[in-house]
Simulated scan of single mutants.
Amino acid sequence: MTPSARLVRHDDGIPVYDYPTDPATPPVSVVRLQRDGLPEKRRHIHDFPILLYLPDTASVHVAAAGDAIDPVWAADKTRGAAVFFDPAALEGGARSPWPSWRSHPLLFPFVHGTAGGLLHLQLPDARKPFWESGIESLETELSDRRDGYRQAVLAHLTLLLIDLARMTDDVVGDLRRSNDPIVADVFAVIDRRVGLPLSLKDVAHELGLTPGHLTTVVRRRTGRTVQEWITKRRMTEARALLAGTDMPIAEVARRVGISDAGYFARLFRSTHGISPREWRGHVAPETPLRTG
């Protein structure tokens, strides 16, 4: 797809991309689109939000995370910019990996439920300079990478998301009012039991639901399975422990509910592309919090 996305698996033959969480990847990326279409020309799924801005048609396209997108709509007429971002970055460093529509209203447009995974919005002429300036500012910050650029790109992104939320207020109003509480309950269980052995069956039992029904609901609303959310939460907690403490790797694994340190290391590498020790070397402060 692009350097801003990482192929993590296939779902019924459809490639699924995730936003990298390695230390070298900024929280926001911008990819310029050319006349020959989108970077990925096959049907694909991405587990992160994407905004497409097309100046020729003065339109914004909101791509829903977790839905299969067919780029055939772009044909050979696409010219503009795609803004990719890690939604967890909007939480200001909080450990929870799911800034959901319940806790972060600026992300609610990305669960719009539109068939095909793309919500098409027409920009008023007066808003075109705002979007063009915002995207150019993102590109400048990402290119120069001066001190504070991560905070700057999140600030520019937030302004775009505020404008998007105002444009989509009517479109997603029904979804906001009928928000399914099951997903929030799943997240709450995983948060509470992140340091313990936990499976889909455990979560379903605690919520009084069958594993099959829970899987269907969570995947439909978030694009991920319950097990994938368990892993994502564990990896988020692991990154915080690796960066903020001198805790041994085996103890970090135990603290995130994984008793086998070797399995933890393999899972961490498959998720982030580097080992836990390498991650710590990149991001740990010079004087981490002492443990024990």
Rank of each mutant, 00 (worst) to 15 (best):
241 L>Q: 05
266 R>E: 10
139 E>A: 07
203 V>D: 00
103 S>H: 07
63 A>M: 15
181 P>W: 09
264 F>L: 06
287 T>P: 02
286 E>L: 11
42 R>S: 15
51 L>C: 04
135 I>Q: 02
182 I>E: 09
204 A>D: 05
211 P>T: 07
168 T>Q: 01
238 A>R: 00
196 L>P: 03
231 T>S: 14
130 F>C: 00
283 V>D: 10
206 E>N: 11
50 I>A: 14
242 L>M: 11
112 H>A: 09
156 H>R: 10
234 R>N: 06
72 V>G: 15
261 A>V: 09
58 A>L: 01
157 L>S: 04
272 H>F: 14
129 P>W: 04
292 G>M: 05
218 V>D: 05
118 L>N: 09
228 E>V: 06
115 A>L: 05
12 D>G: 11
152 A>D: 11
28 V>P: 00
117 G>M: 01
111 V>W: 07
89 A>N: 03
149 Y>G: 01
34 Q>L: 14
224 R>D: 10
17 Y>E: 03
277 R>W: 14
50 I>E: 11
202 D>T: 11
164 L>A: 02
54 L>Q: 00
123 L>A: 02
18 D>C: 04
183 V>Q: 03
238 A>L: 02
138 L>K: 00
268 F>T: 04
172 V>N: 02
256 V>S: 06
48 F>H: 12
9 R>N: 11
181 P>C: 08
57 T>S: 15
231 T>M: 13
271 T>I: 09
187 F>D: 12
2 T>A: 08
203 V>S: 01
45 I>Q: 02
